[in-house]
Amino acid sequence: MRRADRVMPSVADFVLVDKSDRLLVLYSGGHAFKAYRDLQFGDAPLGHKRFEGDERTPEGRYTIDTRNPQSAYHLSLRVSYPNAADRAYAARYGRSPGGDIFIHGQPNGLASDLRMRGDWTDGCIALSNAEIEELWRLIPDGTPIEIRP
């Protein structure tokens, strides 16, 4: 089947986020089918999230484990951070690993066609409101996500 003949999948079975390229790619059956650019991250975008309040976006393999239609941001999909390794690392230092990491839109109350400037989240991954609406439809709960440096 030629690439032009392929039908866009109705849902993703894998999500890849590349922090350095500020890129989110949806996959189905091993094939990329949709990409989103210009992602926004936590105020300290370099490095893996280690502790609550460090404003870093986690790196590693997680799952999209739930969705929040009543988010303070325009829709949100929760990333399953922290995993067991994240909790163990933070515990070694007597600290909390934090949590509530989401892929979400812009803050509620901001005009729907506007975006905050720069990196502004507390460790989440932000996109435009139109993009999160599309991701809301394309990413089912339980979808694996890999966040790369």
Results as ranks from 00 to 15, higher is better:
Asn68Ile: 03
Gln40Asp: 13
Pro69Val: 07
Val7Phe: 02
Ala72His: 03
Asp5Val: 07
Leu39Val: 12
Arg137Asp: 04
Tyr36Glu: 14
Asp122Arg: 14
Arg115Glu: 12
Gln40Asn: 14
Pro144Tyr: 11
Pro140Ile: 15
Gly109Pro: 01
Asp100Gly: 09
Leu77Phe: 05
Asp43Cys: 07
Glu146Pro: 10
Ala130His: 07
Asn129Pro: 03
Leu75Asp: 07
Leu135Gln: 11
Arg2Gln: 08
Asp38Arg: 14
Tyr27Trp: 13
Ala88Phe: 00
Arg78Met: 01
Pro9Thr: 09
Ser20Ile: 11
Leu23Thr: 14
Tyr36Asn: 15
Arg67Pro: 05
Ser28His: 08
Arg37Met: 14
Gly142Gln: 06
Ala35Ile: 09
Gly142Met: 05
His31Pro: 02
Glu52Asn: 09
Asp43Thr: 11
Thr143Glu: 14
Leu110Pro: 00
Ser28Tyr: 08
Val79Leu: 00
Phe102Pro: 01
Leu23Glu: 14
Val7Gly: 01
Ile125Lys: 02
Arg117Tyr: 07
Arg67His: 08
Arg95Gln: 03
His104Pro: 06
Ala4Pro: 12
Ala90Lys: 03
Asp86Glu: 05
Phe102Leu: 02
Arg117Pro: 01
Ile125Asn: 01
Ala44Trp: 11
Pro9Glu: 07
Ile139Ala: 11
Asp21Glu: 15
Tyr89His: 08
Ser28Ala: 09
Phe14Ile: 04
Asp18Pro: 08
Leu75Trp: 10
His48Pro: 00
Ala111Met: 13
Ile132Lys: 04
Ala35Gly: 09
Thr57Gly: 02
Trp136Val: 02
Gly109Ala: 01
Gly30Glu: 12
Arg67Met: 12
Glu59Val: 10
Thr121Ile: 08
Ala4Tyr: 14
Arg22Val: 15
Asp13Leu: 05
Asp21Ala: 15
Val17Ala: 01
Leu75Ser: 09
Ala44Cys: 12
Phe33Leu: 13
Ile64Gly: 11
Leu46His: 14
Gly29Phe: 09
Asp18Val: 09
Glu134Gln: 04
Tyr73Gln: 03
Pro97Ala: 07
Ala12Lys: 10
Val7Met: 02
Arg50Ala: 06
Arg137Lys: 06
Ala32Leu: 10
Ser10Asp: 08
Thr57Ala: 03
